[in-house]
């Protein structure tokens, strides 16, 4: 199961700075822990997060072990034109989740 919550303002004025928030469900297993039987628990983390605005990358992050479970990102961008903001999380064991949100820019 993978679910993500994104918050993008539905409407913004041209040139306005908008805040974008994303939250995704992920265990973020570090790979440094061992089970009760002593076997290593394999690393299972999100490796990369990318956000694009009408196809142009506006924010990205490389993630590493020791980042809390369920990573939460907040960043801002300038509302330039109406369109779609795309979010993509990729990680270990083929983890891949995409989400998108529309934004309407008014003059």
């Amino acid at each position: 199961m993978a679910s993500a919550l994104v918050n993008v303002p539905a409407r913004a004025r041209r040139g306005e700075i908008v805040e974008i928030k994303t939250l995704i469900s992920h265990p973020m297993e570090t790979g440094y822990r061992r089970s009760q039987l002593g076997t290593a628990i394999p690393r299972d983390i999100i490796r990369r997060f990318v956000c694009t605005y009408n196809g142009v990358e506006i924010f990205s992050a490389d993630l590493h072990p020791a980042i809390a479970a369920n990573p939460f990102f907040v960043f801002s961008t300038v509302a330039t034109e109406s369109g779609t903001i795309q979010f993509q999380w990729t990680g270990d064991s083929g983890f891949s989740v995409s989400e998108s949100a529309p934004i309407t820019v008014v003059d």
Binding site: M1, S3, L5, N7, K21, T22, L23, I24, S25
Partner: peptide, 14 residues
């Protein structure tokens, strides 16, 4: 208070 920052909402969604 913020429904996009509250991880509990992920379970609600599921």
């Amino acid at each position: 208070d913020d429904d996009t920052a509250n991880p509990g909402l992920l379970w609600v969604l599921e």
